[in-house]
Simulated assay, not measured.
Amino acid sequence: MSSNQPYLTFHDGRRVPQLGLGTWKVTGEDTAPAIQAAVEAGYRAIDTAYIYYNEAEVGQGISRCGVPREDLFVTTKLWNNRHDRDSAKAALQESLDRLQLDYADLYLIHWPVPKESRYLEAWEALIQLHDEGRAKSIGVCNFQLNHLQKLLDKTGVLPVVNQIELHPYFQQTELQAYHTDHGILTEAWSPLGQGQALQDPVIQELAHQLQATPAQIILRWHIQMGRLVIPKSAHADRIRENFNLWNLYLDDAAMARIATLDRPDGRIGPDPELFHLMKG
């Protein structure tokens, strides 16, 4: 197990492991073993969500992993159809019951769903959940500049993190700059571009030069950029491989080469301004 896991600090003063395990599309009997493999490898952060339909299985993995609860950092998320205040608060309790936990280390609004115009009410509910101690830290996913500014203008409370699609082909530099200016950590979902970036000639060349895997090159790029990152896998070998990057270092020239891979059309997932799936 590696002891080199770096931590970052939220603006609320709490620390978070920089590299975590994502569990999107990790379901059923694969889930608990993946959690156990990750913890054995050295991961201490686990990311799930109501809409992943695996919170119960994630909870089983947590209960079996042999690490004290206070040493783990568990994130889950509020789905789009629960943005009203009472429903948002109830949704967290339902998630905690499935996870078999008393609190979430981080609770996130999964999408802003601006078409419904209720994300502000959801944010106010999360502030209350934080005050009650059921969510130790609170944040958002997929929020754009105008959504974040509205939270600040209306509540004076900014999320500790914004979890967004971010990979070499879609780097969101303007949004990241806003995060930096306002003390919000950037967390990358789909950090490998759903595997597409692994085949890029620049990534392949750097992997060959540094005797690393393409995934390790990209994950190390995220780490050196100061982001939180949550690669997902259900395979123990891949989970260990993704974590085994602390002796890897990308010099300025390598970092600059990856920066050039950004594309105007690089988004793979939904556009947050348009995405409004409500079914849960």
Score class of each variant (00 low, 15 high):
Val26Cys: 01
Arg118Asp: 04
Pro270Phe: 14
Leu228Gly: 09
Lys89Met: 15
Ile217Arg: 10
Tyr50Ala: 12
Trp24Pro: 06
Gln199Ala: 13
Trp24Asp: 07
Pro68Ala: 13
Glu40Leu: 00
Gln172Pro: 05
Thr48Tyr: 01
Asn146His: 09
Cys65Met: 00
Val67Arg: 03
Gly266Thr: 09
Glu94Ser: 14
Glu29Met: 04
Trp189Pro: 00
Glu187Tyr: 02
Met278Asn: 01
Tyr107Cys: 01
Arg267Tyr: 06
Thr213Asn: 10
Leu274Glu: 13
Ala104Cys: 14
Leu185Arg: 04
Asp181Leu: 12
Lys232Pro: 02
Arg15Ile: 14
Asp271Ala: 02
Leu108Lys: 12
Arg82Cys: 10
Glu40Gln: 10
Asp12Gly: 15
Asn142Ile: 09
Ile230Pro: 04
His147Tyr: 06
Arg44Val: 03
Glu116Lys: 12
Gln209Trp: 08
Ile62Ser: 04
Glu116Ile: 01
Tyr53Thr: 09
Trp123Val: 05
Ala135Gln: 09
Leu120Tyr: 05
Pro264Trp: 01
Ile230Val: 15
Asp30Ser: 01
Pro17Ala: 02
Ile239Leu: 07
Thr23Asn: 01
Gln211Arg: 14
Asp86Arg: 10
Glu205Cys: 10
Pro68Ile: 13
Gly139Lys: 03
Asp181Asn: 14
Ile51Phe: 11
Gln163Trp: 03
Val202Tyr: 12
Glu174Ser: 10
Lys279Cys: 06
Ser3Asp: 14
Phe170Asn: 13
Gln60Asp: 08
Asn81Ser: 15
Tyr53Trp: 05
Glu121Gly: 08
Tyr249Val: 12
Arg263Ile: 09
Gln128Val: 09
Ser117Met: 07
Pro272Cys: 13
Leu198Gly: 00
Pro168Asn: 10
His110Glu: 09
Gly13Val: 14
Pro264Cys: 06
Thr75Gly: 01
Thr27Arg: 01
Tyr7His: 14
Tyr53Ser: 12
Trp24Lys: 05
Glu132Pro: 03
Ser3Asn: 15
Ala122Gln: 08
Ile127Trp: 02
Leu19Met: 14
Leu129Lys: 05
Met278Thr: 02
Glu132Cys: 00
Leu192Pro: 03
Gln176Leu: 05
Gly61Ala: 01
Pro114Thr: 06
Val58Phe: 07
Ala188Tyr: 05
Asp102Glu: 13
Glu241Cys: 06
Gln18Ile: 09
Met225Glu: 12
Cys65Asn: 01
Thr173Met: 10
Phe170Pro: 08
Glu94Gly: 12
Leu108Arg: 11
Ala56Asp: 13
Thr76Gln: 06
Phe10Ile: 05
Glu132Leu: 11
Pro17Trp: 00
Glu94Val: 13
Pro114Trp: 00
Gly156Asn: 08
Phe143Val: 08
Leu261Phe: 10
Glu55Asp: 11
Gln209Cys: 13
Ala212Val: 11
Thr155Ser: 12
His147Met: 05
Phe73Gly: 03
Gly13Cys: 15
Gln100Ile: 00
Leu152Gly: 04
Thr76Gly: 04
Thr180Gly: 11
Glu40Ser: 07
Arg134Pro: 02
His235Ile: 06
Pro33Met: 06
Gly13Tyr: 15
Asn4Thr: 09
Ala207Pro: 08
Asp262Gly: 07
